[in-house]
Design a protein around this nucleic acid. Structure first.
Lengths: 244, 244
DNA sequence: TTTATGCTATTTGTCTGACAAATAGAAGTC
DNA sequence: GACTTCTATTTGTCAGACAAATAGCATAAA
């Protein structure tokens, strides 16, 4: 005798999944308004609280956003690039934070995957995109930047580099690696000298991109990673000494 | 006069962020139990419903899991590889489903990034991992598989391939591309002939991996992608005809 | 002593009903 | 016509209740 495959997951989770499927499969179109929470509640035969828990699950994935008032409601959200980048960076920092990935792995991944990405970039980069990279670099040169701001500028520079690949999927993927590398940069940037070095590497990268010199790009990025790794292990050793 | 930067986001969202920070920064360790919902509610001075909405947001990101009963509660979740893959595949299918990425881009991304990944694989693959790939291929050969099961087996095969790189970050990243490619496979696998072709390509890939032949791996994967793209455009044209 | 059984306390899951806050649109006022 | 006020709608939050799961303890039976 075969029972109906008992359902272990909670109602709110199931509703979240149903709504998610409806959205991803296009039954609710992007930007469209879902039924009101009360309506969903009666439709699923549950309380509003349960529906809301389901909706919050979706909100956490940037799948819906909500507005109050008449004309308000829960809307299917077309995630912006910024939101996608955010959720990716969330996942990446989570992985690093929980120790599921170590620094060496991340650097190796960057080395491993950058080749193809740069190859695309030298072919596809538009003048405007090269300009964006240059702008990011200019911003990074400001000596008054706080450590945090310097890191942000660093991320912006590297994002610009992969943006130049003009491929949304590559960008999606490389963004997560860039984010995962932030902890390294963070440990290195506090010294003025290190900042200067990083900027010098970045100038080399920009130049190679402008000349659409793939070899140059790759060796420059490799050198930058070498430098970061070395400085990182130094900083780590110092920190360990401090701790003892 | 500068007010305290007005807070636009909802309380439950803020609480979710605070808890998230506490988890990522390690103030709650992996596997540890959070305070009970009642306790969190009183601690933050809000109702239990609000706390629950916050917790559900975190649950949606696989950051916490909950259990009922005494000894139950909300626990910090060390995301398993399966869960990570799931959330990634979620993001990827979302991107495809919402049309933020088109198929050509995804295939190009795969072509672009596979080189480095395969390079790692031929160097690092353990005997066991090669065995896993072989097992996945055997499973895929079963002619009784449903379309869906065939696709699952296909995903398992490709995952095995990138697992062989022995780099968690590369794996994380390539998984998302593999997932994003599922819709293509889905449109192609319904014909027996196409299945046979795919399996033939996979056999080529497996062989090249066993021989640690990087060139062979790359050309085989390129050929597979060529084949899929061609069959995909055919299927798409047919579907369009049907619709008219 | 060991095993089985049932009880109890604890914690999450869900429900109900209510009010607060935001806000679009209508109605009224100048 | 421009401005203000009112009203209805919808999400955000709250309070309290009960249901369901379950670990641990106590008790009973072998």
């Amino acid at each position: 005798m075969q029972e109906q495959a008992i359902i272990k997951s909670s109602i709110s989770k199931q509703i979240a999944e149903q709504l998610r499927n409806a959205i991803v499969s296009g039954r609710f179109k992007s930007g469209e308004r879902l039924p009101t929470e009360d309506e969903l509640a009666t439709r699923y035969g549950v309380s509003r609280a349960t529906v809301r828990e389901a909706l919050k699950r979706l909100a956490a994935q940037n799948l819906v956003r909500s507005r109050r008032g008449p004309a308000g409601g829960n809307f299917v959200n077309q995630p912006t690039h910024a939101e996608l980048a955010e959720s990716l960076s969330g996942a990446a920092t989570l992985l690093v934070g929980l120790g599921a990935l170590d620094i060496e792995e991340i650097v190796e991944a960057r080395r491993t995957l950058q080749g193809g990405c740069l190859k695309l970039a030298v072919v596809n980069a538009s003048q405007e995109q090269i300009q964006d990279v240059e702008t990011a670099l200019q911003l990074q040169k400001d000596p008054a930047l706080s450590d945090e701001a310097f890191c942000d500028a660093d991320v912006a520079f590297h994002r610009g580099l992969v943006d130049a690949s003009n491929n949304g999927m590559v960008r999606f993927v490389m963004y997560s690696i860039i984010e995962a590398l932030v902890p390294i940069t963070n440990m290195v940037v506090s010294y003025v000298k290190d900042r200067r070095e990083i900027i010098a590497f970045h100038e080399g990268l920009l130049l190679a991109l402008q000349q659409r010199n793939e070899q140059g790009l790759e060796s420059a990025l490799d050198a930058l990673l070498d430098y970061l790794m070395e400085r990182f292990s130094v900083a780590q050793a110092q920190r360990k000494q401090h701790a003892s």
